[in-house]
Amino acid sequence: MSLAAGPGRGHVAHGQLPGELRLVVDKHVAYIQSLDTRRDELEYHLTEHLRIGGIYWGLTALHLLGHPDALPRDGLLAYVLSCLHDDGGFGAAPGHDAHILYTGYSVQILTMIDGFDALEEKMAGGKHKVATFIANLQQPDGRFAGDQWGETDTRFLFSAFYTLSLLGYMPHQRPSEPPMIDVQAATAYIKACHNSDGGFGVAPGAESHSGQVFTCVGALSVAGELDSYLGEEGKDRLGAWLSERQLASGGLNGRPEKLVDVCYSWWVGSSLAMIDRLHWIDQAKLTTFILQCQDPDQGGIADRPEDMVDVFHTVFGIAGLSLVGYPGIGEVDPA
């Protein structure tokens, strides 16, 4: 059981007027279910490195759409556990090397399908092993590497925080045990990535980027430091930068002067929600933009209207709709 995460087979929408725009829930569910049946395409094989990501995105979308059981649990569980390495890390697909991002996705999937008992059955002390894999990737300056090869990125830091948090191994969740990671060093690193325009970059000195804003704000939020660190001034400044991401089409971009893209509905939207400034953008217009990016016939959501759909933009489009309270979609935790 696995899902293709490359561009989908698409269809051109004909004559859907804005007034008729609605979320085609059944089509999206069917689209996600169909992703496992594309093994006859070269693309399916070339995107094997996106397999665990694809399952995580597809499953999250199904949960939000109210169809959590649309994919067979046993198949998902077997697949995820087949990506587990002896050191507690997960790869992107069976046989692929362990990496912090795919370990994070795997733990998210296990959480959604209630799979931690199965993890323990496969590997005694499994949860602790996974947590140790993550903790060992922390560098002396607080950052996290993605894997043994040492590349660091604020995305990895956020991934480490939420994964440990899901596993119950963040230091504040175990006050009586010696901490597995140095939270203070990690948040100090995030603060060094904070720019005077209010946003956050991928490393100290790097320009602000919505994706990095999401990971940094998310990490500060998991660490419980978001409100005390930013304060109202900091939230205003960050909120101003984020709200300027919305363009006339209603969609959001990732950086100044870039094109709008559905995936930023989530990165920007949830960051705004975490700092209580979601009302600083036009949520109705954002909703319309996301709905326009749907393939109304075959299901799935694309980065922009008329583009190829994929499961990544499908989940972030639906999560964006959930943030703004679109009827019939489950609630999403902004972090």
Binding site: P7, G10, H11, V12, L42, L259, Q298, D303, E306, D307
Partner: peptide
Amino acid sequence: QSHGIPRVAATTLDKSEQARNKE
């Protein structure tokens, strides 16, 4: 993921037997 790839109608993606063999 896929960014900026125009959506094409599913019918145009229906591959010929030859194309499928090649793939």
